[in-house]
Design a protein around this nucleic acid. Structure first.
Lengths: 225, 225
DNA sequence: TGATGTATTTGTGTATACAATCTGTTTTGT
DNA sequence: ACAAAACAGATTGTATACACAAATACATCA
């Protein structure tokens, strides 16, 4: 529900530009637009009931995120992300989450450790009850807390970006019961390693945690088709 | 010289927005603005001789890059990057360049291998002649070719971003003769590993290559102060 | 008929005007 | 004297108007 916690900036729902930005990103990621489809500022503006200005700003930002390709004096086109892109993002994340866990070993406070423990504990409960929405929410929270614990503005920024990027996918991946339980067990293991300040182990487990997620997505995709 | 090669999008010099964007980024990274200094749209517009519109769009994009913090209805403030941020970026890069080298093992073509070899060969020459500008240029080119060889749009995008980010710094780091020579030797080693399709080795060397750069920067910083 | 040049259309690039919002201060009432 | 409210100034948020560039269609000419 409360997406604010995970958004690093004010890019969200507090201005027309933010609205258009989120909306377009959602629509592109969800496949509402064809890849290479032209995004006309006026048309989008009319559809959303705003003028060109917020639309323009949103498009320029989406370009930086790589979801839109802008050709000067010509137009904006949907870039979209392929299955390979998604796979790449997870691979990249696997490395960076590892690094994040490593840094967390050096920087995390007792309070943060407790907070993460609480999240895992709560998540365990919801896994048993099969409350998938809460599980997804708590999974996000776990990673968010880890990002904060890394003590790195840059790394946090980056991981949050990718996290949001694949957010829609994650709802799917975690909705498979066994995976949700395993995932939580892995979170537990990461926490333990960090608590013991075992950087090598924490990095390794966090890394493998994301790799696990990849194979899970892969299975899911196969099952779909 | 030819910066275009490294820019993934048209964010550069082909529009007022692009101009303002590059200019502001440069100015923020080079420390022309104080951290937390307010960036007023009108003032910047007047200084650069453009209206608010391109300035606004540039600021919104810089926010996404993390260089500017925008408080809604209030203003834009310089976020800047600290020495720790730079260190973090290099650490992140060390992992990602490793991954990049790994993927290059799987995807690189013979032509690309030859091209990289040529760059290294040329660079060797300029190192001996102490042509620092060309060395920096070729170093950029080496990495750029590797990014392309990874076959990953996402990873390439990301690494190019960070590469640009620390571009000003890199001019310094490579201008130390021994480092330039060592750096080139490391490039050679990376190339060899990739040619032999030894992913583990390629990843390891590429990773350590960036780590080396970090300690070099560290030394340099110490020498400065 | 085909090619070329021009006019029209469409859409972006930029500038400016106006509305909403925030901040700090002054004023006013107790 | 102090607190709360109202006001003034500045700055951003949005809308609109105009300028420019690109694409297209059509007409003209070889």
């Amino acid at each position: 529900m409360d997406d604010k916690v995970f958004s690093k900036d004010n890019t969200d729902k507090y201005s027309l530009r933010g609205m258009v930005f989120s909306r377009l990103r959602e629509d592109i990621l969800s496949g509402k637009y064809e890849v290479n489809e032209e995004l006309k500022e006026i048309a989008i503006g009319e559809e959303l009931g705003v003028s060109r200005t917020p639309v323009r700003e949103a498009l320029r930002q989406l370009e930086l995120e790589g979801l839109v390709k802008i050709i000067p004096n010509k137009g904006a086109y949907v870039a979209g992300i392929s299955n390979k892109d998604i796979h790449d993002i997870y691979m990249i994340r696997s490395y960076l989450e590892g690094l994040c866990a490593r840094w967390a070993c050096e920087n995390i406070t007792e309070e943060q450790l407790d907070e993460i423990e609480e999240v895992i504990y709560l998540s365990d409960f919801h896994v048993k009850k099969k409350h998938y929405d809460q599980i997804v929410e708590l999974d996000s929270k776990f990673h968010e807390l880890l990002y904060a614990a890394s003590g790195s503005k840059i790394l946090g920024h980056l991981l949050r970006d990718y996290h949001q990027y694949v957010h829609s996918l994650r709802k799917i991946t975690l909705s498979e019961p066994e995976r949700a339980a395993n995932s939580n067990a892995e979170h537990q293991a990461i926490l333990e390693a960090i608590r013991l300040r075992d950087a090598d182990k924490a990095e390794k487990i966090a890394h493998e945690h994301i790799i696990q997620t990849i194979s899970n997505i892969h299975n899911h995709k196969l099952a779909e088709e």
